[in-house]
Amino acid sequence: MKGMTIIVKKVTQLMTGIIFIYGVYIIIHGHLTPGGGFGGGAIVAGAFYLLILAYGSDYLSMTRKKEGSAVSESLAILAFLIFATFGLFIGLKSFFLNYLGKGTAGELISGGIIPLYNLFIGIEVAAALISIFFAFLIFKEEIKQ
């Protein structure tokens, strides 16, 4: 896929960082404000979509990037499961137990294990959406050859 004009590229340079930071904010503040892992992860993936569409697919060497996104997706869901399994050995001994300290409600570091779950879900959703998009793009490039 070819890139777009210089206007689009410049606007993308200005906007992508802001969109990415907004997605990370939504993920990290998932237990305080509306949003969470799913919404924030989709916003982070949207920032990457914007980069790919504006700069074309040659700019980021895609096959290598796709490997990275697929691996990070698998690792994130594995970490989510491992953190859930720790609940089987601590305290009440139940799956998905909230075993960390709760803290004061309303602060950034509070809610026990919930922010960590949110983080891993966010990584998983972002990486999954990006690798789906990469798979479509690579398929298109290969069809043309």
């Binding site: 237990h31 305080l32 909230n98 509070s110 294990i113 879900i121």
Partner: peptide, 20 residues
């Protein structure tokens, strides 16, 4: 749950199996 956002509290604590 210790989470101010009730939706996240339900999704990741009471109903964490659904999220998985």
């Amino acid at each position: 749950t210790g989470s101010t956002n009730l939706v996240t509290g339900v999704l990741l604590d009471y109903r964490a199996y659904d999220t998985l």
